[in-house]
Amino acid sequence: MMHLDWWTIGLQTINFGILVWLLYRFLYKPVLTMIDARKAEVRRQFDTVRDFEAKANAELAAVEAERAGIAAEREAALKAAAAQAQEMAEARRAQAERDAQALMDSTRKTLASERESALDEARRLALDLGADLAQRLLAEVPMQYRAEAWIERIEQHLKAMPQAERDALVRQLADGKPLTIVTACALPPATADQWNARLRQSLGVAGAMTFAVDPALIAGAELHFPTAILRFSWQSALAATRTEVGSHGGPR
């Protein structure tokens, strides 16, 4: 039979209890405390990592939003720049069209002015040439025929004048004031006497009349009253024609 030594069992039991207490007191409890502390540290680090991750996500979202904003601003800036460039191009094109139109208008006006000037010069040359030719032809006509044509024209003009205007001219010859008859060339004495008599009759006066010569008249005659002149010369006709030609060549 097995013999049990209760004292040995008792002592071993006490030793085991003491061992368990020592293990619990100096090993298990510190280990548990260390494990709890480690858990707390891990939990704290996990919370820190989670907070850092959340912050990082927030910053990443902000960066993405900022990037999206920058992209939108860039796109808007590009659209604005394109619109501005298009507007500037249209403005330059419109200005170029206006400049071209202005140049064309100026060119047309210049050409028209030059054409009018050339026509005016041609008219003047034709007028001068015609006057010169007419003067040469007229020189071949006997003086008596030329003088007759001139005096008839003067008589017709005096006859067609209103009575009030003719009376005003006659009054200028009162008190012996002379009437001067200016011709382009000297009239023969007989022709001058005939003019004297016919003009006295047309005007109804008996005052003195004198004759003078002015080659610048080209042809025809002028009646010089004290304060008025009746012109029947080619000089006055040519001057009026030149004035008319000049007015036709004026600005349009």
Rank of each mutant, 00 (worst) to 15 (best):
W7A: 09
T13G: 12
I14G: 05
L22M: 08
L23Y: 05
L32V: 07
M34N: 04
F46Y: 12
V49S: 06
F52S: 05
F52M: 15
E53M: 05
N57E: 08
A58W: 00
A58R: 05
A58S: 02
E59Y: 08
A61W: 04
E64W: 01
R67I: 09
G69L: 11
A72D: 15
A81W: 08
Q84L: 02
A102C: 01
S106E: 10
R115T: 07
A122Q: 07
R124Q: 09
A126V: 02
G130R: 07
L133F: 11
E140I: 14
V141C: 02
A147L: 10
A147E: 01
Q156N: 14
K159G: 08
M161Q: 13
E165F: 06
R166S: 07
L169H: 03
V170W: 02
V170S: 00
L173G: 01
G176Q: 02
P178N: 01
A184F: 01
C185P: 00
A186L: 01
R200H: 14
A206Y: 06
G207C: 14
T210N: 14
P215A: 11
L217M: 15
A219C: 02
E222I: 05
F225K: 00
I229Q: 04
S233I: 07
S233E: 00
W234Y: 09
A239S: 15
A239C: 02
G249Y: 00
